[in-house]
């Protein structure tokens, strides 16, 4: 970790040549997309203008950026923690859904409890929902040796379908004309938002998660042991580190973080459970985490970058009639360049 931190400062100050080259490469990504747009008869300057204005041009844009970043950060943390010991958790999407599902169960069943009791309870339920789903894959990995990449991926689909089943079936709210919504949460079950914006308490969870992860990984024995497992599992085993326990535990906590994202989405944004609470947050989170090399602070920065592009995608659509996919191209090109620049040189492959 220390080596990493030093590396940051080195890249930041010590190597102007590399810095310039990188700036050049990123400009190249924008230029490439610009030419692409121009070739299709669109004005690239205006397109970029709209993209950046969408997120950074107004207070409203900035608050919405934070709303967008919240599930990104939580889902990326859900990927990053297991990744520290070499696990590939593709399942944040599913864990987010089960978190939302269990939290909704709490909100619908205990909606009459006073807020001071209900909300913390829902937070625990949301965490538990994701944690159970995640640790299930972890347990399969330790007990049966089932690859967690495949189990988390398959369980994503199951979790989304579970949510659909409940909102179309048992939890359908008769007061909502039999539409696939649960009943609205009581005021006590709503996670507070800041001011008149939609920025909600989930952001605090996200930032707390990042800080705690950073400290745990850096300062504690757990963090040290996880690093040992990640570096050399065989050595870790010989040193008596309980690898199996760490597998389940990291998947438990990681899943729980994604579950929190789901809980926040239903409790703060939607106010009820319904299909489509997530637009691939789990998968975006996965990408964020890998692009940040699972570094907590890198995750925040990457989430910021993706958030800006996502918000900008709507703007170029409304104002310029460009398809949203334009930002996917920009995103992909930037990733290609960051990946290709060797900065993310991966451990292992």
């Amino acid at each position: 970790m220390e080596a990493r931190m030093r590396a940051i400062t080195r890249v930041g100050t010590g190597q102007p040549a590399r810095l310039i080259r990188l700036m050049g490469m990123v400009s190249f990504a924008f230029l490439a997309v610009g030419i692409f747009l121009w070739a299709f008869g669109k004005n690239p300057v205006r397109a970029y203008g709209e993209i950046f204005q969408g997120a950074l041009g107004s207070t409203y844009g900035l608050t919405e950026l934070l709303v967008k970043m919240t599930p990104f950060i939580l889902c990326a943390s859900a990927t990053a923690l297991p990744a520290r010991i070499g696990l590939i958790n593709v399942g944040a999407e599913g864990q987010l859904h089960t978190g939302a599902l269990i939290a909704t169960w709490g909100a619908l069943t205990f909606g009459d409890l006073p807020r001071g009791i209900l909300l913390p309870f829902l937070v625990i339920l949301g965490f538990a929902g994701g944690a159970i789903w995640g640790s299930f894959s972890g347990a399969l990995r330790t007990m049966v040796g089932l690859n967690e990449t495949i189990s988390t991926l398959l369980l994503n689909y199951v979790a989304v379908l579970l949510v659909e089943h409940y909102v179309h079936g048992p939890w359908k709210d008769p007061a909502s004309f039999n539409w696939p919504f649960t009943a609205e949460f009581t005021e006590a079950a709503r996670l507070p938002t800041f001011g008149s914006s939609r920025v909600h308490f989930g952001l605090v969870f996200a930032l707390t998660a990042v800080v705690v992860l950073y400290l745990v990984l850096r300062k504690t024995r757990w963090g040290y042991e996880m690093r040992v497992i990640g570096d050399n599992a065989e050595a870790a085993r010989r040193a008596g580190i309980p690898i199996g326990r760490y597998i389940v535990l990291t998947m438990f906590i990681g899943g729980g973080l994604a579950g929190l994202a789901g809980m926040a989405e239903v409790s703060a944004i939607q106010g009820r459970l319904r299909p489509g609470i997530s637009t691939g947050f789990g998968y975006t989170g996965f990408l964020v985490s890998w692009l940040a090399s699972h570094h907590p602070i890198g995750i925040v920065i990457m989430a910021f970058l993706l958030g800006v592009l996502a918000l900008g995608g709507d703007m170029i659509q409304i104002n310029l009639g460009l398809p949203y996919s334009t930002v996917n191209i920009i995103m992909a090109l930037i990733f290609f360049i960051v990946l290709g620049s060797g900065q993310l040189k991966k451990m292992g492959a």
């Binding site: 398809p323 930002v327 995103m331 290609f336 990946l339 993310l344």
Partner: peptide, 26 residues
């Protein structure tokens, strides 16, 4: 990216997915 530049395979693959999604959408 992964053979010549030794980039991470999973990250690069996922980026390729976004690339395909974006280019074909456009």
């Amino acid at each position: 990216l992964v053979v010549t530049r030794r980039a991470n395979q999973l990250a690069s693959g996922l980026a390729l997915m976004f690339f395909g999604l974006g280019v074909t959408g456009f």
